[in-house]
Each structure stands twice: as structure tokens, then as C-alpha cells.
């Protein structure tokens, strides 16, 4: 426990502001939200991914992550969430490298689609106004989102997941101190 990094500076206020940014991101897919006061988690976790984790994960949410021992120790200490080896059993899956296949994550059930997993996906950068064309609930006409560092074959995997609606995985994209979200309801076309 020598070098454990701190979590939120102000746990109550920072968790609220992080949640509001994620809620706004989820309600307006493709809009990029900056987190006002994210923590400084151990590498390779980005401040945004750390903030999303601390704001939403706790003892009730099994976590899968690929960010190494130090990040896992940080997450378990501050959020108190159990770690799982199998991504299919996770409520939150946090990927800093190649994420698990969307089809391997829990998509929920017909009667309880809310049980689906959330993938917190760390990418190189997020930018509005160019790139993918997003349509669906939360979007007036079309939002454009450029994602640097999306996994290979992501759009095809997303289309397959979208076809199962209302089942499906929701994604929170994190880059630096910014988040954007891809709820399962959104349709993505190549830009």
C-alpha cells in the first residue's frame, strides 16, 4: 500500500459532477463532456475513466479491468468493487487496451434490459463535429463524433449489438478528462 494514489478530492461533490457529465453524455450521445474535477488515477487509467469508476462503481458492481495491478488496487480501495476475471460477469468492464468483444458482455434480458453491462472504454481522443454519424434518441438530427483509437471492427460489432435493442451494452468513452457515451439505442454510421 506504499504508493496508493488518492481518489476524488471531494468525494460527494466530485462524484455528483462526474455523474452529471456522464448523464449528459448518455442523454446526448456523441456530445463530449469535460469532467470538472476528476481524480488522478494510476497509469494507464485516464482521469475520466477513474472518475466514471469512482462515481458509479461500488460493492454491488463486479468490475472487469485490464489496466494492471496498480489500477486494480486503486479501484478496489476507493470504489470497493469486487473484481471478476470473466468480462461476461461484470457490471462494469473497463478497457484501456483491446476491449472484450461486445458480444461477450452481458446484454441484459428481455424483461430486464437494465441488467446489461456498461463498457468504460478508454480511447486516444474524442472530438465532436467530424467522424462517425450518430442518430437515435437524444440526438436532434445527427451528432458527429470522432474517436481516435476505437477497436478494430467496432462499427460492425456495434451494429450487431444495436440490432438486439432493447438488449445491448452501453459504452462510456473516456479520453483524458473527457467523456462521451454510446447508449445501446444509438445508430452509428461511418463518417
Amino acid at each position: 500500500m506504499s504508493g496508493l494514489l488518492p481518489g476524488f478530492a471531494d468525494p460527494v461533490a466530485d462524484a455528483q459532477s462526474a455523474f452529471r457529465a456522464v448523464l449528459e453524455a448518455m442523454a446526448r450521445p456523441g456530445r463530449v463532456q469535460r469532467l470538472p474535477s476528476p481524480p488522478a488515477p494510476p497509469a494507464p487509467l485516464s482521469p475520466a475513466a477513474g472518475a466514471v469508476l469512482l462515481a458509479l462503481a461500488d460493492a454491488e458492481t463486479p468490475l472487469w479491468l485490464d489496466a494492471g495491478a496498480e489500477a486494480a488496487e486503486w479501484a478496489v480501495f476507493h470504489a470497493g468493487c469486487p473484481l471478476v476475471e470473466d468480462a461476461g460477469a461484470a457490471t462494469f468492464a473497463l478497457a484501456t487496451g483491446t476491449p472484450p468483444a461486445l458480444s461477450s458482455l452481458d446484454p441484459g434480458t428481455d424483461e430486464e434490459p437494465q441488467r446489461a453491462a456498461t463498457l468504460i472504454l478508454q480511447v486516444a481522443s474524442l472530438a465532436e463535429g467530424r467522424g462517425w454519424r450518430l442518430t437515435g434518441p437524444g440526438i436532434e438530427r445527427e451528432h458527429r463524433l470522432q474517436v481516435e483509437g476505437a477497436p478494430n471492427g467496432f462499427l460492425a460489432a456495434w451494429a450487431a449489438s444495436r440490432a438486439q435493442f432493447p438488449l445491448g451494452v452501453d459504452i462510456i468513452l473516456c479520453a483524458g478528462d473527457c467523456v462521451a457515451a454510446l447508449p445501446r439505442s444509438v445508430t452509428i454510421r461511418e463518417g
Partner: peptide
């Protein structure tokens, strides 16, 4: 009392539910 009355664990539970509610509109 905590900010906005509810404890943090309750707020997190409701916040997770709200995000899923937004992802599946009307459910």
C-alpha cells in the same frame, strides 16, 4: 445529513439506474 439528504451508496445506485433508464427510453 449528507448533501441532498441521501447517502452516497443510495445515490450511486439511483445514478446507475438512471443511466440505464436513459439508454432504454421508456423502460
Amino acid at each position: 445529513y449528507n448533501f441532498a439528504y441521501l447517502d452516497e451508496a443510495t445515490k450511486r445506485m439511483i445514478r446507475r439506474a438512471l443511466l440505464k433508464a436513459v439508454a432504454v427510453p421508456g423502460h
